[in-house]
Design a protein around this nucleic acid. Structure first.
Lengths: 243, 243
DNA sequence: TCACATTTGTCCGTATGTATC
DNA sequence: AGATACATACGGACAAATGTG
């Protein structure tokens, strides 16, 4: 300790070093200094800029990585690339929360039913032709996969994603993404004989198609009933397999 | 490299070391090997157990920490304590997602209105006396804070949290927690003159009280209208201040 | 194909801050 | 107050991955 008074150049923040770094980097991403697609400086460069050790930088990057702000790749030209969306990480964390809190599947499916039906109201108010086209494309895709013997699981998930987007409300998109993650996790663990599932899958796709028609024709009540059917069917499927 | 064949003691996983560690620790928390309130072994002990360096352990712990699985405290007897809930971290990440995706406040408040009204249906089916008592206690608390000049902001947030819990559906609790985080963030940035806000706050509390009465009396339609009023009022408040 | 530079991934040794006893 | 145990942080070193000439 020399006599010169080092009146707190850093200790004024009670945060840990890596927290200060990750918070600062978050700010810079939020305010657009670093844009999606761009890369953050290398760990070494960041350590020099922030005047901290590389370990602190790494822990800060770890925070940003699992929060979904960046993806990190090794090697030349690699580094920390700023992501444009946090949706998948967000949904993943939602899933972890469900597991830790041991939320019942029944609760989750019930909530999903209620929320999706609510969303449908918004969809019926706000949809446009391109939404209908995306939904139809999804159905075509699902039929193609079905006939070639591939799984239509992802298509069915995507259908509900597109439906949520058609509401033109981003909040619902995020919420549905999270709920779908739970659904996807459960379904992915289901072992089903393809014979039985084939008939069921066809029913789901046909149901989706009728739903799209009802939406386009603005037959609100019909659409709501069809969506309820669809979700009840998924509910049954999941709850029965989960014993 | 000796001639003895090291047939993959580790490299069989393509994951990074800290990922393997954090995933394994997650499993151990999920399956109840480590229970909430308990502490993980110290970093040094973990490093020895996993046969990896401390830095890898640190990054793994960082992942678990910001995911909400553990909280870390320095000092003797400190360490990594397993948390019982990830709700606040979850809500925080939801907030980050909102910011990064630049979701409009209007969307968020609209979604909240729709979802909370949906929840009210469940509340009216499932509430019991203890829920009513908790809501009343919250209102008493809010009035006390109001008369002593303190902020009733947290009370108002808590009211909606309790309402969500009364639905007995954990999924909605999580979703509402996330939406409330967005609301809280916006409100916390609002600078309001206490004179004006006092009248508004009183109106909110009175409204909450009438809502509780309507729920208890099972006047479903009245309750729904009162909740809509309450949320519309919040919506106005937030949207006007946000320009 | 073969270096070579860059960047992340990992480990070690050491020192410091902090909370508990 | 002192000792202890722990997280926090730094710097150096080397390995592994990846793109470039």
């Amino acid at each position: 300790m020399e006599s010169t008074d080092f009146t707190m150049i850093k200790p004024l923040n009670n945060k840990r070093t890596f927290e200060g770094v990750s918070d600062r980097l978050k700010e810079l991403i939020f305010d657009g200094t670093f844009k999606p697609g761009q890369s953050l400086p290398s760990e070494h460069a960041l350590a020099q800029s922030f005047q901290v050790g590389r370990q602190s930088i790494r822990e800060a990057l770890r925070v940003l990585e699992i929060s979904g702000f960046i993806t990190v790749r090794p090697g030349t030209g690699g580094g920390s690339v700023i992501e444009g969306t946090m949706l998948s990480k967000m949904a993943g964390m939602f899933l972890d929360t469900f597991k830790l809190h041991k939320v019942s599947l029944m609760d989750c499916m019930a909530a999903r039913k209620i929320i999706e039906v609510s969303i449908l109201d918004l969809v019926l108010e706000n949809f446009d032709e391109s939404d209908i086209e995306k939904l139809r494309e999804n159905i075509r895709c699902a039929r193609a996969h079905l006939s070639s013997g591939e799984s239509t699981f992802e298509d069915n998930i995507e259908f509900h994603r597109i439906l949520a987007r058609s509401s033109k409300n981003d909040t619902f998109c995020i919420v549905i993404e999270a709920l779908l993650a739970v659904y996807a996790e459960v379904r992915s663990k289901m072992t089903v004989t393809s014979k039985i599932i084939n008939k069921k899958v066809l029913r789901i796709i046909d149901n989706h198609e009728r739903l799209v028609e009802a939406i386009e024709a603005r037959q609100n009540q019909v659409a709501i009933e069809l969506l309820r059917d669809d979700l009840s069917f998924s509910e049954e499927l999941v709850l029965s397999s989960a014993k």
